[in-house]
């Protein structure tokens, strides 16, 4: 999921950085400062999750948790993912500093989409709908992120269909696992702390 340094050309890197900057600016504007501790905890979870390697499938893949981030944080997921990716690049050498913008956008944009698609459905009283929505949320987070990676790699001269197939198939096990993680997290929170599922964007 993390694109290494030296793979992408400058225009792609600059576009990614600009989009991430815009997303983070909007995310910070929307951030409800009383929720900062929650954002920090989920940032840590995202930071650590990439160390959990999924040993199934042809390539080396790991958890991302961007669906869950979007579901619980809304727009705040943007700055949260940027900080976590910065630390991953610094401490684990995942991705890189120059590709930070592109990588952050690739993971945070699907998180926002997931938020708009599922944040309401997960809170529905009907458990079947709510849990189904949570699973699809986790699944779609990775699927969209894989497609974003594929789109970026198209600019390096790869045909889209081929690279997309490769990335999506490699991440299929992660999609299912993240669907389940999101399902259980959402189920757990809904039962015990339903107020955490209410993403509160600052009213300003």
């Amino acid at each position: 999921m993390h694109i290494s340094e030296g793979v992408l050309s400058a225009p792609v890197l600059v576009t990614g950085a600009a989009l991430t900057a815009a997303g983070c600016g909007f995310g910070l504007k929307k951030l409800d400062y009383d929720r900062v501790p929650q954002v920090a905890i989920l940032t840590s979870a995202f930071f650590v999750a990439s160390l959990i390697h999924v040993p199934i499938g042809p390539s080396s893949v790991h958890l991302v948790l961007n669906g869950l981030m979007g579901l619980l944080l809304g727009w705040s997921a943007f700055p949260a993912i940027l900080i976590a990716l910065f630390l991953q690049a610094l401490l684990f050498q995942f991705g890189g500093i120059t590709t930070l913008g592109v990588n952050a956008f690739n993971m945070a944009f699907p998180a926002i989409i997931c938020f708009y698609l599922f944040a309401y459905a997960v809170k529905v009283r009907n458990n079947l709908i709510s849990m189904g929505a949570a699973f699809v949320c986790g699944f779609l987070g990775i699927l969209l992120a894989s497609l974003m990676v594929a789109i970026c790699l198209v600019f390096t001269g790869n045909p889209f269909i081929g690279i997309a197939k490769l990335v999506v198939i490699a991440h299929l096990p992660v999609m299912i696992i993240e669907g389940l993680i999101t399902l259980f997290s959402a189920g757990f929170l809904k039962k015990l702390k339903p107020e955490l599922l209410e993403v509160v964007h600052a009213k300003r």
């Binding site: 929650q38 702390k193 955490l196």
Partner: peptide, 12 residues
């Protein structure tokens, strides 16, 4: 409000 997340983080 943040206990569930703390537990989740511990698990991770």
């Amino acid at each position: 409000a943040t206990w569930p997340s703390v537990i989740f983080l511990m698990l991770v």
